[in-house]
Structures are given as structure tokens and as C-alpha cells.
Design a binder for these strands. Structure first.
Lengths: 102, 102
DNA sequence: TTGACATAACTATAAATATCGATATATCTC
DNA sequence: GAGATATATCGATATTTATAGTTATGTCAA
């Protein structure tokens, strides 16, 4: 997790919203049967929900991934994104340590 | 405290550093005797330490103030800035609530 | 192999941000 | 009041970000 990249990634309401949506897989359309066991969500579903172009969302997800906030996993033609809960928590810890007066 | 503005204000390493410096008044040159009781730091000291132009720092401090992370107080020709600890804490709480899975 | 599809990478443009120097404003001192 | 000082504001430019369209890449299915 990279603090600078993470803050930059979060400095956008749509990306924060996506991170929120990913808390609950069921806020998206059901996965295909063959992907039922996967936790992540494919780009197309996220795009649909966000209402922005495919390229924009792909770029957003790349930023979130580079920031270490989400994990991507390719399965066939699909890329599934899911939150990295540990990284998110440790980001919050780091921000708190940096901001809070000792 | 405004979440969007606060994140934007923190999305810059110098502004985060300033916020850190302000944790400890003694990391700056001593205040004038007539300002000894004040907790804040004047713009010129912050500028000196940051090594950026006066206008840039004045602008930075304005952003931090609008984000609600610092409090400014004018005394004569000087403006003293200090951290708003309560606002910082509640910002951290809000970010945590937004990011962390329930 | 040939399409069809999902996603990523590339290109382009508009908007936002970083940063400075210059100027304006307020205040202090004489 | 005139000049000095501290800060804010304005104007300009360079860089970064947002976003879309287009193209490339990889994979599936017939």
C-alpha cells in the first residue's frame, strides 16, 4: 500500500463510491454460475453502475489496484476486482498515525 | 469539516507535512513576545520551512482552512494557523466509517 | 480460424492543480 | 500621511487529472 497513491486514488468521489459498492457483492448483478465462488466484480458491472465509459472505469480500477486498495484477478476474459481489506485497514492506520497528534 | 475538500487538501505531501509541523509549535522559530500565548504559527515561518513561495503557502493554508483542518486567527498583520484537532479527528472517523466494511 | 466479447492501453481534450511573480489590502511604525 | 511588513489575491504557465473514443490484446465459442 502506498500512501500517496492511495490518497490520490481516494481523491475522487466515484472511486470512493466504487470501493463502497465492493463491500457488498450483492449490490451488483449476480455473477455467472461459473464465477459464483469468486468474490470480485467484473469491470462491466462496475462500469454499468458508475455510468462512466469502459475506459474510464478500467483506468479507475487500475489506479485503485496500484494504490493497493483492491486486488484484481483475471479469469478468462474477465477481470474481477475486490477490496483488499487488510490494505485498506493498514492505510487507515497509517493515515491516522500521520495525522493524529501523538 | 468537508470530506471532499479535506481529502483534496491532504492529497499533497507538502500540505501534509505542514499539518505535521503544526503538531509542535517548537519546530518553528520562537514567536514574538507579544504572541507568546498564541498556539498558531504565522505564514512566514511555515513558508520558510516549506521552501515554497509566499503565495503558494498562503494558498495552501487557505485550502487547509477551507477543508476545516486548520484554524486561522488574525492578529494585527499576522495570521496564525493552528491545527483543528477535533476536526482532524472527526475527519479520520468519517473516512474510517466510509472506507471500512461494516 | 473467425468473430464476438471483456478489458487494457493509447490518444486526445477539457478541466483542475501547482506554483510563481506581481499586485492589492491591511496594519504597524514613524 | 508615508513607508515597511505580513498576508491574500490575481494572473500566467506548466503539470496533472478526468474522461471519452479508439485501438490492441487476450479469450471464448462456433
Amino acid at each position: 500500500m502506498n500512501m500517496d497513491k492511495a490518497i490520490a486514488a481516494l481523491n475522487n468521489p466515484v472511486r470512493r463510491r466504487i470501493l463502497n459498492w465492493l463491500k457488498d457483492r450483492s449490490s451488483f448483478p449476480p455473477a455467472l454460475p461459473e464465477h459464483a465462488e469468486l468474490e470480485g466484480v467484473c469491470v462491466a458491472y462496475i462500469q454499468e453502475k458508475a455510468g462512466l465509459s469502459q475506459s474510464t472505469i478500467s483506468n479507475y480500477m487500475g489506479l485503485l489496484r496500484e494504490a493497493g486498495l483492491v486486488i484484481s484477478e483475471r479469469h478468462g476474459q474477465f477481470t474481477f476486482y475486490r477490496r483488499d481489506e487488510d490494505a485498506i485497514r493498514s492505510f487507515l492506520d497509517a493515515v491516522e498515525r500521520e495525522l493524529l497528534k501523538p
